[in-house]
């Protein structure tokens, strides 16, 4: 195992005060055994999950989905439809759970809020229908901080974040400043996360590391610790906007980081792989990875999420297969 050594650790809360201490700590983290991490992730991916365990895993995975649309072409109509789907993914089956959250751009947050929490001014919809099942339980996530590149002045990022929270988002997905991280300006990255954390107010903060741009697993481990030290509630692999998105080994490294962070500080941080997870098989592999790396404490939508869009339909099709015995077809589920 590549557990982080826990001996002779400086006071973690003091680290953010000086660039030297931060760098010393991050570079003092043990290196990741690349071959070992990839092998372990691949080996855990070979587990066969069947029957009732599979049914349980599919329902859990549905509850963990952050149903995402982050396109320039998003319209109020499209995100409303997506939010409705989040509440009731399979209209034909009332026993199907709702998803974890809807994730959109800040300008689309008000339209999603309308569907998830009823029209502005009160809970419960104005129409004859009662508030949909899951209303208020499905979270509303918004990307912020000049997503996906993060190349904007700090004031813009803060304003972006505050606007999203004011519009009704209760989870903020921020991107770290990769430019600063890769040039070794850790203090700048740290301060930025701290500032955004403050701007979030009551909203949960997910910090996107964009692992596809970090080059090495060592960097992933450092970025994970940096984000957690600065106050992240969740660490997330990718924006989904660069070709290299979430992979099982990257997620394994991040899971080890949250496990070690809890051991060191007592604070539990969630993990969200995003991008490229399209099939039920992939999702179940990630769940196995979670269970074997950090244990059942993280097998909960509060602590593990999937950033995905097309994954949900595959989960629903597999769920239908298990309940009806017949393979389902994509024609029977909404496309977005």
């Amino acid at each position: 195992m590549t557990a982080t050594a826990m001996s002779a650790r400086p006071d973690l809360t003091e680290l953010g005060r000086s660039e030297t201490a931060l760098r010393g700590f991050l570079h003092g983290l043990p290196g990741v055994d690349q071959v070992g991490a990839e092998q372990r992730a691949a080996q855990l991916g070979t587990r066969s999950i069947k029957a009732t365990a599979k049914a349980w895993a599919i329902d859990l995975a549905i509850r963990m989905v952050d149903l995402t649309t982050l396109e320039g072409a998003d319209t109020p109509g499209k995100v409303r439809a997506l939010a409705a789907k989040a509440l009731r993914p399979d209209p034909a089956d009332p026993s199907c759970p709702h998803v974890g959250a809807v994730c959109v751009y800040p300008s689309m947050v008000p339209y999603v809020a309308e569907v998830l929490r009823g029209p502005a001014g009160g809970a419960g919809s104005a129409g004859a229908e009662a508030a949909p099942a899951g209303a208020g339980v499905v979270h509303l996530a918004s990307v912020a901080t000049a997503f996906p590149a993060g190349q904007a002045p700090l004031e813009v990022k803060l304003a972006d974040t505050r606007a999203a929270v004011a519009a009704g988002a209760d989870e903020i997905d921020m991107v770290i400043n990769r430019s600063a991280f890769l040039t070794g300006r850790y203090q700048e990255v740290y301060d930025e996360v701290v500032a955004i954390r403050e701007a979030c107010g009551p909203a949960h903060l997910k910090v996107i590391l964009e692992t596809g741009e970090l080059s090495t697993y060592d960097n992933v481990r450092r970025a994970s610790w940096l984000a957690m030290l600065a106050g992240a509630d969740f660490i997330k692999t990718s924006t989904g906007k660069v070709p290299a998105a979430a992979t099982p080994p990257v997620t394994l490294v991040m899971l080890e980081a949250v496990r070690d962070f809890r051991a060191a500080t007592g604070r539990q941080v969630g993990v969200k792989p995003a991008g490229g997870i399209k099939t039920t098989k992939d999702a179940i592999k990630y769940l196995v990875l979670v269970n074997e790396t950090v244990g059942a404490d993280w097998l909960d939508p509060d602590w593990f999420r999937f950033g995905a869009s097309s994954l949900l339909n595959d989960l629903l099709m597999q769920r239908t297969k298990l309940t009806t015995g017949d393979y389902a077809g994509p024609d029977y589920f909404t496309r977005d």
Binding site: G325, D326, A328
Partner: peptide
Amino acid sequence: PSLAGHRDV
């Protein structure tokens, strides 16, 4: 039989 029941056939 699984092909006969398959919704995408």
